[in-house]
Amino acid sequence: MGRIGYIILYFCLGLVALFQIFPIIWLFLFSLKDNKEIFSGSPFALPAEFRWENYVKVWEGGIGLYFWNSIWITGIAIILTVLLASMATFVITRMHWKLSKLVLGLFMIGLMIPIHSAIIPLFSMFLNVELIDNPWSIVITYTAYNLPITMMILLGFYYTLPREIEEAAIIDGCSIHRMFFRIILPMTMPVMSTTVIINMIYNWNEFVFVNTFISSDKYKTLTVGIQNFIGQYMTDWGAIGATLIISVVPILLAFLFFSNKVVEGISSSAIKG
């Protein structure tokens, strides 16, 4: 292929990259401007003066609380999901029992169903056990709905673990619990970290469960929080921009540091084998 051919190809790829990244850069730019500058100046101009006070204003105006809720709900759900999924994957792939294939199938069906079809009964269930407007309803829902995808990512790794490890451990008189928590679980560290980061992205960004189950402001997470918050600042573009940037920064930072894990997790969660 000639030089010109390559230039055209790079041009196309660069154009796609620009399309993907530019709206986010534009968002960052206007988060540092005031309305006057946004409405009269060029949308592509750098801010005349970097107005970081937009960030201070929205953080103190309530975003801080939503941010904290997102952190702890995301964190606890990740720990529960990865632990329970690891335990289940361990007995499904490593232990011998008749129903293992059937049980695995049940988890994998969970990957296909549209969650919105379950939301009305879930709502009425939580209402009956008084878990509506309680953040724990969110934690257990996230855990349940992320178990299938987490197990799917874990499966491949568990299948490739050598049998000799278990045999040696048992011959040495090691109990199954000890073997799982002290030997197997540490060995799956690389794939576990992938599932942690995938779960983090899912939980941090989740909207519909929080929007449905939580009504008090004090329990809302960032996604639903910013949605309401933006209502208050409807006309202040700088404040809206700052709010959105704050909400996406944790995920972008995680991507910056662990981009290979994210890529690995997303590809293995979509296509098996």
């Binding site: 990259a17 909207f207 960032l222 910013i226 933006i230 921009g241 995920i251 997303i266």
Partner: peptide, 22 residues
């Protein structure tokens, strides 16, 4: 390039929606 292409996928639907409303 592949990683740049992936960035929008990592944002929440609410953030994407609010950004595109703008």
């Amino acid at each position: 390039l592949r990683k740049i292409y992936l960035i929008p996928m990592l944002l929440s639907s609410v953030a994407i929606a609010q950004l595109w409303i703008k």
